[in-house]
Nucleic acid binder design. Structure first.
Lengths: 140, 140
DNA sequence: TCCATTACTTGAGTCAATCAAGGATCATCC
DNA sequence: GGATGATCCTTGATTGACTCAAGTAATGGA
């Protein structure tokens, strides 16, 4: 179902536009990941490893259970995209880092996921600033 | 992980704002569904039954395999939220419709999913129009 | 040293999603 | 009117995300 998170009713034009944006964004993300044979979750985790970090930090940032990260990282590791090494300072912890292949795949993902770039690119610099301001205000 | 679909890098303020919007939107959708003990997919399908319709129409609209809809509708049916009756005009097809309970749950979902409403509500009518126009332009 | 806490893993279970295959019905064409 | 192919949906198998409960190992403070 790709991205089923569509709203039930959109009572205003602006709400409908927000929905369309989210829908297209999510679908584009999923498509870009699929082009690299990654699940969205795998692409997401891989993208958050610009610096090596622990499992717990990933779980907290993504708002999910640590055991979920364990699984996703294990699959990324099996694909040769990340390494998981013991933290010398705290041997309970594991530090996850991208391998060179992981970095390459990550960059290819960033290239494939053109949606946000393209969408913003349709706006003039002034319009981009307006959009940013409006979204920030809407987000509260 | 709720909604892992975060971008790898956001090269502009506007892209970052788009990401934040999508992230918060998706999480709010999931939270609202969870409050009613529904999965996002279940809430989504339930919300698309303002009129009774066939399985195939749902699958096409949501861009997924028909067998996926079969499963989701079966769970909704087991929960007493929808009925699945043979189409008198085409006995291959099944017409899915909300039960009264399903309608009630759906309305409670619409109430619980306040994000889009709240976000838009932070903007003046003029700003809402601007946002709509900018998003439409960005969507191409 | 003892003990609570922290960091992560394991195991069990649910759900979403896809694919392949199959049954039933429809629609058409001769 | 009967065969043929397409359509609508289901079933079964498999993968992955996600959560929860329970467990292991290491830390750090009393």
């Amino acid at each position: 179902m790709a991205v089923p998170n569509r709203p039930v009713t959109t009572s205003s034009e602006a709400e409908a536009a927000l929905f369309d944006l989210v829908d297209v964004y999510d679908r584009a993300y999923e498509t870009a990941a699929a082009e690299l044979s990654l699940s969205p979750a795998q692409a997401c985790v891989l993208g958050r490893l610009d610096e090596r970090r622990g499992m717990g930090a990933l779980a907290e940032e993504l708002g999910c259970d640590a055991s979920n990260i364990t699984q996703i990282v294990a699959r990324l590791e099996a694909l040769g995209l990340v390494t998981r090494e013991p933290d010398p300072r705290d041997r309970r912890a594991r530090l996850v880092a991208r391998t060179p292949l992981g970095s390459e795949i990550n960059e290819r993902f960033a290239t494939a996921f053109t949606f946000a770039r393209t969408a913003v690119g349709r706006l003039s610099p002034d319009e981009q600033d307006q959009l940013t301001a409006l979204l920030r205000k809407a987000l509260g």
